[in-house]
Design a protein around this nucleic acid. Structure first.
Lengths: 192, 192
DNA sequence: ACCTGAACACCGTTCAAGT
DNA sequence: ACCTGAACACCGTTCAAGT
């Protein structure tokens, strides 16, 4: 008797989930739909992932990983102001390309980042290094939080449809980024 | 034959939903649980609200209304810097008091704010008026978006557990608020 | 005009039985 | 070791029948 051999993998399952998310929203990520996409029956998924909630969390982690990989290159640019502009633009571009993925990643971050703390760290690290060059080591962390809070807040409001009072949204984003660059570059360099 | 008289109302239903949200999270908002809380059977809810999704949206709208009512008083303070500090502090305080309500409101804003555009407008209006005093009419809208994007982004990252790199989170919020006040007060007054 | 029980479709999850 | 069909509990929603 030959024991059944694995017909799918966790990566395939997560990829199937992301595909379903992109085409039909979070509600389209059902265990049966995922199973069908990877060529297996629903119950078999539980050999690879303990629950639908865990699958959603894994998808969120995958999205954040991708975002981190896209931001990293821009953080190293020589001129800090140019680097900040580039990171901010790339951040927003990612959210526009994958709006449902971006929203899911944030709404399920708490569960997603629990087991692999490294996920969020990996994404945040280069940004903090960039801020260290701008405001010095003592304020690097709060400065990074200011920048990412603005970027995330703006983009998530935008995706949620909160900007319905007219006005050019692109202009508003640039306005915010430039004011932040001003504020951070003008801040006294504290620490080492 | 006396026709059955109404045994509940939409307001009661929304209130029941918020109570369930507070005690057990979004998943605890089931139609049966809401019905039980208002003293009725599940199917009867559909006389007042077309679907669970609509109920969630109504709850989100209710939360945003409450947030708007809490921010409004602070926007009128004489000194603009003081006003900005007060609004920012109140905003974060609300999110800390009702974390699940705050998260639900934002994750379902798109549906929530669709029918009553006034909801989001009512909340945003006083903040824009405040910004008009700070940067002038031409930049008031982008300035308001900068401020609210930071506040929402910071608070939602905080609630999602994104700040796990240590550091004092209160200090980081103050750092951000003060830098924004600096940046906005120093900006040239444009328009009228 | 609103309320109800019964019923339906759908979904997450478990498990005994297969290979 | 993994796969499957069958079964269970739970949930949103519909509807015919009641008052």
């Amino acid at each position: 008797v030959s024991p059944a051999r694995a017909r799918t993998s966790l990566e395939e399952i997560v990829a199937a989930g992301r595909a379903l998310l992109e085409s039909g929203g979070v509600d389209a990520i059902t265990m049966q739909a995922v199973a069908e996409r990877v060529g297996v029956r629903g119950p078999s998924l539980y050999k690879r992932i303990p629950s639908r909630a865990a699958l959603i969390a894994a998808i969120a982690g995958d999205v954040l990983d991708e975002l981190g990989r896209r931001l990293a290159p821009h953080t190293g640019l020589a001129d800090p102001a140019v680097a900040i502009r580039a990171v901010a633009a790339e951040y927003r571009a990612f959210a526009h390309e994958r709006p449902r993925a971006y929203e899911l990643a944030w709404s399920h971050l708490s569960e997603a980042a629990r087991p692999p703390v490294t996920v969020s760290v990996r994404a945040a690290d280069p940004v903090i290094a960039l801020m260290e060059r701008v405001v010095g080591p003592d304020d690097a962390l709060p400065a990074a939080r200011l920048l990412t809070a603005f970027a995330h807040g703006f983009v998530s409001m935008e995706l949620a449809g909160a900007f319905r009072l007219g006005g050019d949204v692109d202009v508003a984003y640039d306005f915010g980024v430039e004011r932040l660059i001003d504020a951070l570059l003008r801040a006294p360099q504290r620490g080492a």
